[in-house]
Amino acid sequence: MNARPAAFPALAAPAAEAHRAPDAGWHRRARPLLGTLVEVGVPCSDTHANRWADIAFEAIAAVQACLSRFEPASEVARFNALAAGEEIEVGAHAQAVLSAARRLQHESAGLFDVSLGSAPDGWRLDGSRLRKLSPAVRLSLDGIAKGHAVDCAVQALRQAGCESGWVNAGGDLRSFGSARVAVQLRDEAGGGVRAFASLLDGAFATSHYDARSRCRLAEPGADPASPAPAPMPRAHAAVHVSVAAPLCLWADALTKLVALSGDAMHPLLAGFGAQAWLHAFPAHPQ
């Protein structure tokens, strides 16, 4: 079933303890953001809980406003509308995400590519200046920005004095402080969830690849007008890729690397303190 199952890390706590944190101790809120459902969990507090949740949602909305290609005023949408040779000033969010994307692009020999094959070297970030080098380049930060948004929300919560909790943007999850979160994998094909692991002070992300649908990630060098589907392990209807990493930005981005390479033991993972799981399962009867 599993192509190459990675070993679980050493267990730091007995299983029973992993699930002892009661719902009653946590205040949970959720809003539709980033094209998915974003959940925030913070310690119950009459005075702070709702304010903390609002702070986390605001941090995520701020990232969305800068980086969503679907928002015409976003930096990514404005960059995509530029002519070759033009440049725009970008803020801290775009700088952080694009720097990370470029690093991963280099280290993965082009496998990770936020231009989705349109022109992998068609953009250059120089400080806060983002320059368009190729008329063909179109950036999409879908594969990395959600994780960054989660990290920003966690940072905002900590700065506001919230010592523990979690933020989950449709499966891009990060817990911090003493919040140990039970992670359940959503069965994308048949519905329902499966218990998988528990997470303490770290991030966890999952990507899904379905043989019947066209993958949004193009292979490097593919024609941008018709992005090629990602390589799919044979005989599998669908593949879940999960990555745990200290930061959600890397957990999010590295799921794409693992999915595209099909390698849950990809050598780059260790450099990010990450580990991956590849779960292949057959199609559900309809």
Partner: peptide, 14 residues
Amino acid sequence: GEDIANISGATLSC
């Protein structure tokens, strides 16, 4: 139960 549980999945859309 009383667990705090979170789903991880890729296509959860709003």
